[in-house]
């Protein structure tokens, strides 16, 4: 070990050889979330369902927002799955390094495991939400082929994007604690600039290019495509994939540069 100067010295071998730590941290995250809650794991089902129901009542029945497919509930639910994974994992992963300051100053393991475990901690919620989504979609005519082919792709894309985002935010949060206050604001804003309550088609022609620069747009539309058979989001998804790849590389490189100073700053 010596003072590192190279920017490109990510030790993937170390990630692999200590993957058990990542696994155990993820298990810890999942267990802690529902310990001592009265309804426990039931929240995993209630949370997305209740949110989709409220959406269906306010936007679907009340405001009569246009939507694709027969039911507004499924229309909203398909978008809420990726959105809730994004917002929940970000809120958990953001402070993941600062809240485990004791670990950072006492023992070594790849620090990237902390935001990653917070990200993968929502996998159980995700699995249940997907099952619920399939259940909802069944009686509106779910195409098994489309789901089987595109859901795994959408899943990988969603989690890669969330992981990259969370690693970046968690690392920055060590140096700029203001992020703690900025994140909830950004998450709220993100909800308005993503096609969750409304379809992509309501965005005016001249804004659509800018709108699609939000990588969540492509991901959300891919989920709608898989569940509802809405048009395949060619432009939005390609753009989102490109942004995700650049973001992931950027997150990896900046994180390994920052992590050397974590123990001294935290």
């Amino acid at each position: 070990m010596q003072p590192k100067s190279s920017f490109f010295s990510i030790d993937f071998h170390e990630f692999y050889s200590s993957r058990y730590v990542l696994f155990m941290l993820t298990v810890r995250d999942i267990k802690l979330r529902y310990k001592q809650t009265a309804l426990g794991a039931l929240w995993v089902i209630l949370q997305p369902l209740l949110t989709a129901l409220i959406f269906a009542i306010i936007f679907g029945k009340g405001l009569r927002v246009p939507h694709a497919g027969e039911s507004y509930l499924l229309f909203a639910f398909a978008a809420l799955i990726p959105w809730m994974i994004f917002s929940q994992s970000l809120q958990r992963a953001g402070p993941s390094i600062t809240s485990d300051a004791r670990l950072i100053t006492k023992v070594y393991f790849p620090r990237i495991f902390l935001p990653l475990s917070a990200t993968f901690g929502v996998l159980v919620d995700y699995g249940i939400a997907i099952l619920l989504g399939c259940g909802l979609a069944l009686h509106t005519g779910l195409s098994i082929h489309r789901v089987l082919l595109w859901l795994p792709i959408a899943t990988l894309h969603l989690f890669l994007f969330c992981a990259a985002m969370n690693v970046l935010i968690a690392g920055l949060n060590v140096f700029f604690r203001d992020l703690k206050h900025i994140i909830p604001f950004l998450v709220q804003l993100g909800m308005f600039v993503s096609p969750i309550a409304y379809p992509l088609s309501v965005i005016p022609e001249k804004w659509i290019g800018l709108y699609q620069c939000n990588p969540l747009v492509g991901i959300i539309e891919l989920y709608r495509f898989a569940f509802l058979g809405t048009p395949f989001p060619k432009v939005a998804w390609t753009l989102s994939l490109l942004i995700t790849i650049v973001l992931s590389a950027g997150a990896l490189f900046s994180f390994q540069k920052w992590e050397r100073n974590f123990a001294d700053v935290i």
């Binding site: 070990m1 010596q2 003072p3 100053t105 006492k106 050397r260 123990a263 001294d264």
Partner: peptide
């Protein structure tokens, strides 16, 4: 201790474990 535990990195010099 922190240097040997790899918790923090040396500013100069080398450590081999």
């Amino acid at each position: 201790l922190k240097l040997l535990a790899r918790v923090t990195q040396p500013t100069e010099g080398e450590i081999e474990l």
